[in-house]
Design a protein around this nucleic acid. Structure first.
Lengths: 224, 224
DNA sequence: GCCCGGCTGTCGAAATCCTGTCGGGAAAAG
DNA sequence: CTTTTCCCGACAGGATTTCGACAGCCGGGC
């Protein structure tokens, strides 16, 4: 589950980033409409959090474009413009929800959840492999009903591998997917994560293991 | 997964190459229509990225030829010609998608993914020869159910040979296919790989062997 | 503030695995 | 018969991968 935040205040970016991280979601932040458009075009995100007051223009224009080009993508407007007229304008432009600053981060979170719940396009089915299940919406990995707590990085890794069960995922792809927008991963961060996840998978009996495909990548395989 | 980029700007070639590498795909770049035609004729690629403005002519001509000769091959046009009419012209000529420069590399990536996803031809089926099977998804080579572990180079070799069972594959082609982006292979690396694979094929009873065609290349033949 | 615990990175060692070099020899071509 | 091409055993260097130990960071609780 990957969200896009369009916002130019570093403080707010930090706050939201924090919040989403806590929920087990990944957040990319951009500060301009131009970057936002590019990021959305990449179709990697499941939800957009849009601030209206941006340095290079008004977010409503982006929203209209977005409604034409990416109709199904849920958008939540975050803004200081709190009057009724302004709300109506935002929602009429195609936003799915509207949140006025300042807001409580827990409200943001639950609004996001609600949007993802009601938007069937964005709901990714629960992923399964062996006795493992991963729910992208709640970011819970469970093994036979019991939650397996995983730190963010390891969780992302599992999410990708489970989405491609039985198929090799190239290292390069895993690396870019695990890194937050832009940052490079350190040399062996991926291998570390794999190693750590492996150990956890082993201690539970998951019926699943991560195999190495030398020179290419990794592959989640169900013991059969 | 191997892509062909037809483009004459070195900068753009570099950018795209980077991007595709990140996705774990292989990219070959050519700068002229002539080279493009030759590359496509070799049928090594799963997707073509085509710039329209090339030094030796217009890409649309190539596209039309391509649609006749290689109907299933997905083509994405990359160009600065962004007007509606131009887009329509490109798509009508048989392009599967159309991307206007400048573009964000992540958008390119996801458009490629989308094309490959919807193009069933590019989803590589399991390859078979004799009692051998090679599954590109898991990178497993199996012989009668048992996995035959192969190092990367030998695996690539087998993959190519199996894709062309019964046909001679020129050494040159094998060499470029086995070499990582740019690097030359050492003098007899290919022969080494062939030799090593041969030994493995022999010890199993695969009903398959690699034959030498002197001065040309190799050929995988099923004993019959 | 201060400590604690969880997460992630660095370092480094070790194991494993891959692939090249070398070189003699076989086979085919001319 | 000579030349070219190819084959392949043995071996070594090097690349890749794994993982333990440990350190820094950061947020939360006291």
């Amino acid at each position: 589950m990957r969200l896009l935040l369009v916002e130019d205040s570093p403080r707010l970016i930090e706050l939201v980033s924090e919040t989403m991280h806590e929920a087990g979601w990944r957040l990319d932040a951009v500060s301009t409409l131009r970057d936002a458009e590019a990021a959305i075009a990449s179709r990697e995100h499941d939800l957009v959090l849009l601030d209206l007051g941006l340095p290079d223009g008004d977010g409503l224009g982006l929203l209209k474009w977005l409604r034409q080009e990416h109709a199904g993508l849920p958008v939540l407007i975050i803004t200081a413009r709190g009057s009724v007229d302004e709300r109506i304008e935002g929602l009429d432009a195609g936003a799915d929800d509207y949140l006025v600053k300042p807001f409580h981060h827990r409200e943001l979170l639950s609004r996001c959840r609600a949007m993802l719940r009601r938007n069937p396009q964005a709901i990714q089915p629960v992923l399964e492999a062996g006795s493992l299940r991963y729910d992208p919406a709640t970011a819970d990995l469970t093994c036979g009903g019991e939650v397996v707590p995983l730190p963010p990085r390891e969780r992302s890794l599992m999410e990708i591998l489970m989405r491609e069960v039985g198929r090799v995922v190239p290292k390069r792809r895993l690396e870019t997917a695990l890194s937050e927008y832009g940052q490079e991963l350190s040399s062996n961060a991926l291998e570390l994560a794999v190693s750590r996840v492996r150990k956890k998978l082993q201690s539970l009996k998951t019926g699943v293991q991560i195999e190495t495909v030398r020179g290419i990548g990794y592959l989640l395989r169900t013991n059969s």
